[in-house]
């Protein structure tokens, strides 16, 4: 395990590649999730012209259950490296082996799902799977807000079907490649829920965290518990009961409200000593003893 003095440069980060046609919303997704960019402001994002990497780590974790939030003084680190690509990026122009990525997120704009992006995705998926059969293949059918409920579901099913068909064209066994499809939008909480699921597949300790959440629910008689990363509002784990989207939305909104409240009543004189109280002093054994 990483010691508390670990230099972040030495960490092995899970690499996540975001690909998709131009203007499908890749940069918006990253900025919205990790930079607190308001969904309306994504309108002003410029087209991405070269591959850009962003690093991100989970810091303070806080469990929410039935609207009780506790700041845990622990610092679990799930180091991520997110790669944002221009729309034209191909496996060749990427210049790094696909096997380096633990996850590939392919973004479709639900309004423009033509043969071209489908074929492109299938090429990526097949190549990535060949290099590394345990790669996580994720599809975000994005901008779901632009279609009415009925069309949205139809086109979502349609995309899944066409992807499976195209893969079977290449090789019959490719039909079995596991791919996770999700409907997303930056105008609601769906992207947070979707990306949380992406992260779950990267957390080795997930079964233990889930067990803890189960125990927590049982002992506190909570109907549902999420372990959230405060800053990104992604949930790291939840108990075994199924996630129902409205409950997830409410918890996510609640966390958002609390984080927005924080700066409003911060006192320039009274807050600093309070900080000193809240931050736990590091146990003396945390320094490397070599």
């Amino acid at each position: 395990g990483a010691s508390s003095s670990a230099d972040s440069a030495n960490l092995t980060r899970s690499k996540i590649l975001l690909v998709g046609q131009r203007s499908t919303g890749k940069t918006s997704i990253l900025q919205f999730l990790f930079n607190n960019l308001d969904s309306k402001q994504t309108f002003y994002l410029e087209t991405t012209t070269r591959v850009t990497t962003h690093t991100f780590e989970y810091a303070a974790l806080s469990p929410i259950s039935r609207f009780i939030l506790t700041l845990l003084p622990i610092s679990t680190i799930i180091p991520l490296e997110l790669w944002d690509c221009p729309g034209v990026t191909t496996i060749d122009t990427l210049n790094v082996p696909l096997a380096q990525f633990s996850t590939i997120v392919f973004v479709f704009d639900i309004q423009h799902v033509t043969q071209i992006p489908i074929v492109r995705f299938v090429d990526f998926a097949a190549a990535a799977y060949q290099d590394n059969p345990s790669v996580n293949l994720e599809v975000f059918v994005h901008k779901a807000d632009t279609l009415s409920e009925e069309y949205r579901i139809d086109s979502f099913r349609h995309i899944q079907q066409r992807v499976t068909d195209e893969l079977a064209e290449i090789a019959l066994e490719y039909e079995q490649i596991p791919i996770n499809f999700q409907l997303t939008s930056i105008h609601d909480n769906s992207l947070h829920e979707a990306f949380s699921r992406v992260i779950h597949r990267l957390i080795d300790s997930l079964p233990y965290l889930e067990d803890l959440m189960n125990v927590f629910c049982a002992n506190s008689q909570s109907s549902k518990a999420f372990l959230f990363d405060i800053k990104s509002r992604l949930y790291v784990a939840t108990d075994a009961s199924p996630v129902d989207t409205p409950t997830h939305n409410l918890c996510s909104d609640y966390l958002h409200m609390l984080s927005s409240f924080g700066p409003l009543y911060r006192s320039i004189t009274a807050s600093p000593p309070r900080h000193r109280v809240v931050i736990p002093s590091p146990p003396s054994s945390s320094f490397p003893s070599s």
């Binding site: 506790t70 009543y265 807050s271």
Partner: peptide
């Protein structure tokens, strides 16, 4: 009820 890093409310 809020118990945040900066204040309780």
């Amino acid at each position: 009820e809020m118990e945040l890093a900066d204040f309780t409310a």
